[in-house]
Design a protein around this nucleic acid. Structure first.
Lengths: 351, 351
DNA sequence: AGACTGTGTGAGATCGATCTCACACATATT
DNA sequence: AATATGTGTGAGATCGATCTCACACAGTCT
């Protein structure tokens, strides 16, 4: 087919020049050409220049595939995140890409869409590319044989946003439990006792930790946990809308809501509007993860913010440290969160 | 270094099994093993099973690098966009990734950050990986020797969101000029005559087209273009804030503003708030490209929406059609835009 | 019996870059 | 003069998978 195409158009498919071509043009052997271009070993001055000129003329760029086959590694790092459409991950992906480029690497991005199966197959597919290392936000906190396999083969791995049980490697996370606890304690301090939680799938590490912060704060406040106050949803605006509506259609709905990520916070906002629930008058709202939108609404949304700008860079730096041969114990970074009080929480008197 | 690490920990670095290993375990030659695993040519029944078993046992996964070196192509497609953090591109990247995966390919993402130099070096670096094809949103409408080079080497290329002069290849864009014209005509119809334009760098194709739609509408409305009504900014929220402030700090500022993308629209919103300008009372606003936020504000923002969900998929489909050998003239898809009237534009009486 | 066809297998070349080794020639050292 | 050292170069092996070719043996046909 393809050749047929080319023939039909009468086109010459110009193949990229190889080292052999360069060597031939410069009248030297491949070995000498390689020496001249990579400047190692002994090469005569004139010879080197001849080779350079020939390479220039042919527009020679080394075939990284062939280089990689010998060296065993492609200058690519892989990155598997939950969903690039989540601004949190988009930011991280962007930062990783920038740092990778600085280190002369390209970035392959895969989206697990929070499906373990997808994460596994993506990883396998990238591994067969002899990719040098990975940054992964694992879908599941405990189902992680595939990650263990990576470690066993000594492939550098950095976990990001989430860690996985029994996986001993570099990681970058935030203090999810502490952040969630601060948020819920704040709500309790404002007089709320029926505090809703809009959370993600419990397989996900952050979801677990944030849930446990929520529970801890309730316990500290002397409030009994109540399953009717908890709604689970996938992390998309649409699903969060539904989950919020379910939560607030009960006979005695929460007076405050804590949402575990920014897409859910947005979903809750939309749901509240469609239900005619006003913030902070009828319901108080506080979300984990800050987002652009948070300051556009009226009132602005109070959030627990994460140092997004640092997470991706930190993970990338850890990865490239390993790639450049750094040994030593896995580093486990944990960033602090910060509560940003805006206007979406009000004091409750009647409770 | 690396071996030192391994030795220090006393670890065996288990190398992935090769075909040779499999062949040895199965007591056959590499050729036979290859035949058994890829099912071509003649292979005896027992032999095939022996090989399968051996492969299974060793956890053999072919080295795609080696395969690619022979075949000349890696099952990877590249994608160079302006900025993954722009939700428009994030959505596109996501859709391309999904389709690529369906087609058994991985996706390398690069961000040009709207720098021509970065686009060029990224492309070169990906090309040396023998990547099979590219989807690019070119930074510049006319500076495109690097894209010509791609075409000359017969590397499949699909332009997305933007086309480039003199580049004859598949492309997917929207009707920027028409969309912009509709928006501005709508403003004119609502009685506005001092209509501001907050636009991106003129190197960028969409910026040119939207600008020309803006001009066309003004002309049709009998309004003389006025440079003081136009402000240029990079496509980030922060830059757009500044540009908006400049535009509206004049003695006789616009009564309406048309912004050429969603990040700029958000920037304008922030700027208006900080300046105490109320929408739509003081100023009317209409933006190109819909965004989540648009329905969260009060009033909601009127926009010209693009069929984002289709653009990425369409581009990916074009690319994979080419990769599977489809010949024929380049297809140039152009999607229609749709104006979504919400509440950010008001009728102006005193004009 | 001799010439075929069909089936199954292995040896070796290939893709492109790199690296080890051997060799050649110069100059310097004893 | 004989040996060492330094400089420059090419032949060939290597990475791993694939593919062409040659060969071997079965069975079939004249």
């Amino acid at each position: 087919m393809d050749p047929a195409c080319a023939m039909a158009k009468g086109e010459m498919v110009r193949k990229p020049a190889t080292l052999k071509d360069v060597a031939a043009l410069a009248n030297v052997s491949r070995a000498t050409a390689a020496r001249a271009l990579n400047s190692y070993g002994y090469v005569g001055n004139e010879t080197a220049q001849k080779v350079q000129a020939a390479a220039e003329k042919l527009g020679y760029r080394g075939n990284r595939l062939a280089q990689a086959l010998r060296s065993g590694q492609l200058p690519i790092v892989g990155c598997i995140l939950g969903d690039i459409q989540n601004p949190f991950f988009a930011r991280i992906a962007h930062d990783i890409e920038v740092l990778a480029r600085e280190c002369g690497h390209n970035l392959v991005i895969g989206s697990s869409e929070e499906e373990l199966g997808q994460e596994i197959s993506l990883l396998a597919s990238l591994q067969s590319l002899s990719i040098r290392g990975f940054i992964v936000a694992p879908t599941s906190a405990d189902n992680n044989a595939h990650l263990k396999g990576l470690i066993a083969e000594n492939v550098p791995l950095v976990l990001i946003d989430r860690v996985a049980e029994g996986i001993d490697c570099d990681s970058v996370v935030v203090d999810n439990e502490g952040g969630a606890r601060k948020a819920v304690e704040y709500l309790i301090g404002m007089g709320h006792r029926r505090i809703g939680l809009l959370q993600d799938d419990m397989r996900i590490f952050t979801s677990r930790e944030r849930m446990s912060g929520y529970r801890a704060a309730l316990a500290a406040g002397g409030i009994a946990p109540d399953d009717r106050m908890v709604s689970v949803s996938q992390s998309t605006v649409e699903h969060a809308v539904d989950a919020t509506i379910r939560l607030f259609s009960q006979k005695s709905p929460p007076t405050a809501l804590f949402t575990v990520d920014s897409l859910m916070t947005q979903g809750a906002l939309l749901a509240f509007r469609s239900m005619g629930i006003s913030i902070p008058h009828d319901v108080s709202l506080i979300g984990f993860d800050d987002f652009n939108l948070a300051t556009f609404t009226d009132p602005q949304i109070t959030v627990v913010s994460q140092p997004v700008a640092e997470i991706g860079r930190a993970a990338a730096r850890l990865l490239f440290d390993r790639l450049s041969g750094k040994c030593g114990k896995p580093q486990k970074l944990r960033f602090e969160t910060k509560m940003i009080v805006r206007g979406s929480v009000s004091r409750r008197r009647d409770a």
